[in-house]
Design a protein around this nucleic acid. Structure first.
Lengths: 207, 207
DNA sequence: TTGGTTTGTGAACGCTGTCCACATATTGGT
DNA sequence: ACCAATATGTGGACAGCGTTCACAAACCAA
């Protein structure tokens, strides 16, 4: 006898994924548990196995969603610096925009950010180059694009050498990690706000 | 009847801690489980509760040990650049030394590194300034010290502004995280080796 | 010796992921 | 329209995890 749901849920996979995202949002990767996700959807734990091979599989799906949201935050920030700028000014501002978007997301959604770059020995890592579908750009591609623009407009202190995007990424990512999940957690918010432009400045000048 | 150990172990706390470190070394923070640690020591799980308030407490102790090992790696690297250098040359080299030590530890002991900066909502974070005993310097203090030396010898591109150590730390930490636990995992080793000096160069020039 | 404190044991509880057998909807062929 | 095959959710079970409680054994002090 069908007790819990309508027995035929309709789109259980999506429902479970959304429940997982919600869990990650508030509790980070370690909060996305298969049992709790199914509980929220109102279905028995095993039902999840028809749509996700394992809990890790669910977590990977949530991770992808988190990465997409991070990219969205960067694009939002990029859109805010308007297209009425001259190419060179736009190029100059784009690195700061994507960097700021990165940091904004990390601080606004620490749970999702930690999920996106979640720790763990079993976490499946895909190199940014070969990641996902080409349609949507990932965080790394957006950062790389900003550097490309700066190089094209010659507003970069140094010549754009291959791999420079990794250096920029390291700086931004490192600050984000230290702030939301590391020893800098609890640091004064204003101090962090002051640090962000200085960090991006360091990247521009030193890359 | 005393079945497992000698019933009176001697120094169970230390034994459990060392077992925990061993677990963290190979499996990262999520591998340090109370039950496995006690199992290795040959004692019943509950015995741990006489020496650690909880599993988190054990993990915190392991984290401290990991941080100490990281600092040790940085000091080793610092010692390798000899004291026969002129103060200004030594200052110049010290940032790269501590940075390299940081990266070396991260790559050589990813499990311990991930434990040192372990993720999780319940991770107790202490600001570097107020951390630990004064006798041994932590990773952050060593990095900060290197920048101080460079500023004193005027070998820094810019004036040493307060908080610059956070920027340097962010860069190094970010690369380490991306390499051992993030999307850059699996990157070509030589490529990483080439990236490290460039990253430290970026810090020197851009800070 | 005796009584108290420390330290390890044993059994239990609820939580987790996962596997198995089963029941129920949906779907496609005839 | 019927009937078999498939897809999907249920129920029950198992092992492993952290944690708690009551109890036993060892040490220590008076």
């Amino acid at each position: 006898m069908p007790a819990r749901g309508t027995y035929r849920h309709g789109d259980l996979r999506r429902a479970l994924l959304e429940a997982g995202i919600e869990l990650a949002r508030f509790g980070g990767p370690e909060a996305v548990t298969l049992r709790e996700a199914t509980r929220r959807v109102g279905v028995v734990p095993n039902a999840a196995y028809r749509h996700f091979a394992s809990q890790q599989d669910l977590l990977h799906a949530v991770r992808s969603a988190a990465l997409a949201e991070l990219a969205g935050s960067m694009e939002t920030e990029l859109a805010m610096i308007g297209a009425d700028l001259s190419p060179s000014v736009f190029a100059m501002a784009s690195l700061r925009a994507v960097g700021a978007g990165y940091m904004r997301f990390a601080r606004a959604e620490p749970g999702l950010f930690r999920t996106a770059f979640g720790t763990g020995p079993q976490a499946d890592r895909t190199l940014p180059a070969e990641s996902a579908d080409r349609s949507r750009l990932g965080p790394f591609q957006l950062l790389s694009l900003a550097l490309d623009r700066m190089a094209a407009e010659n507003v970069l202190a140094a010549k754009r050498r291959p791999g420079a995007e990794y250096l920029a990424w390291s700086a931004v990512h490192g600050l984000a990690m230290l702030v939301i999940d590391g020893p800098l957690r609890g640091m004064d918010e204003q101090q962090i706000d002051a640090l962000i432009p200085r960090l991006l400045e360091m990247v521009e000048k030193g890359i």
